[in-house]
Design a protein around this nucleic acid. Structure first.
Lengths: 149, 149
DNA sequence: TATTGTTATACTCTATAACTATA
DNA sequence: TATAGTTATAGAGTATAACAATA
C-alpha cells in the first residue's frame, strides 16, 4: 500500500474531535474580540455586515430571535461600530451598516485569531485544499439542523 | 495529474468555512440539548463528566471562571442530572458526578445530533479518516489560544 | 499564604409575549 | 392581516471581587 493507513476513527471520535476544534476556534475568536472590547455576539454581527442588513435579516444570519438583535445593535451603535439607516423602499425597515471603525475592528479581530491561523498555517497547500474540500461537503448538510425550533 | 485539483482556498476562505461548520455543529448540539430541557452549557458539563471532576477542574475544562460553575451545577443538580460529593482526600473539594439520569440524557443528546451525524455519514471511510487526521493536526495548536485572559 | 468553593454584583445574551407603525 | 422593529420580562451565562473553610 502506498499511503500509510491511519486507524479508522469511530463516529464518536470524529464527533468529539470536530467539537473540540470548533470550540477552540470559538474561544480564539472570542478572545480576539474581547481585546477590542467586543463580546463574541457583537463581533459576529460585525462579521455579517459586509453589506447593509435589516434587523430581521441579521437575526436570521445569527440564528436568534429578532428581539435580541435590538439590544446587540444598540450596544454596537452606542460605541460607534454600526449605524441604523432607514430603508428607502420600506418605512418599517432599518438597515444596519458598519462604520469605518466597525469595518477596521472586525478586520483586526480576524487577523488576531493567532491560534487558528497558526493551526491552518501548519498544513501545507495540499492539506489545506483537502480540508477545505471535506468541510465544503459537510457544510450544506449541517447548515439546517432546525427540524424543530 | 491523477487527482482532480481543487482551487487552492485562501486563508480567509478556510477560516470562514471552519467557523461555519463549527457554528452549525454548535447549533445542532444546542438544539438536541434543548429537547431534553438543557442549555448548551449544561449539556457541555454533562459531556465532561465521564468521571468525577472538582468544581475547579470543571471550570478549566469549560474555559470559564469557577464562580460560574456553581450556578450551572446548581441547576443541573436541582433537576437530578448530577450530584456533589465531598472529596475524601481534601475537605475543600467537591467532586461533581453524573447521576444515571445525567448519563443517559447526555448519551441521547449526542445520538440526536442528526445534522452532524448525517454530514459525517455522507463521507466514506477514507474521507472520514482523512478528515480525522487533519483535525487531529489542528487540535493541539488551537487548544491554547489563551496568551491573554 | 495559597487554594476551593461560594456569594454578591453587574452586564450580556436568550426566548416569549405584547405593542406600534407600516405594508 | 401580516411584517418590521421595539419593549418588557424572566432566566441563564459571564467576569470581578470578596468571603469562609481548609490546606
Amino acid at each position: 500500500m502506498g499511503t500509510p493507513t491511519a486507524a479508522q476513527p469511530t463516529m464518536t471520535e470524529l464527533l468529539e474531535l470536530l467539537a473540540a476544534v470548533g470550540a477552540a476556534q470559538g474561544q480564539d475568536f472570542a478572545a480576539a474580540a474581547a481585546r477590542h472590547g467586543l463580546t463574541s455576539m457583537q463581533a459576529k454581527v460585525l462579521a455579517q455586515l459586509d453589506g447593509p442588513l435589516s434587523m430581521h435579516a441579521l437575526a436570521e444570519r445569527l440564528a436568534c430571535d429578532a428581539s435580541n438583535v435590538t439590544g446587540i445593535v444598540d450596544r454596537l451603535q452606542a460605541h460607534g461600530f454600526v449605524l441604523r439607516e432607514p430603508s428607502p423602499t420600506d418605512r418599517r425597515v432599518k438597515n444596519v451598516v458598519r462604520t469605518e471603525r466597525g469595518r477596521e475592528t472586525i478586520l483586526h479581530v480576524h487577523q488576531e485569531m493567532r491560534a487558528t491561523h497558526a493551526a491552518l498555517d501548519s498544513l501545507d497547500e495540499t492539506e489545506q485544499a483537502a480540508l477545505y474540500a471535506l468541510l465544503e461537503r459537510l457544510r450544506p448538510i449541517m447548515e439546517y439542523p432546525a427540524d424543530d425550533r
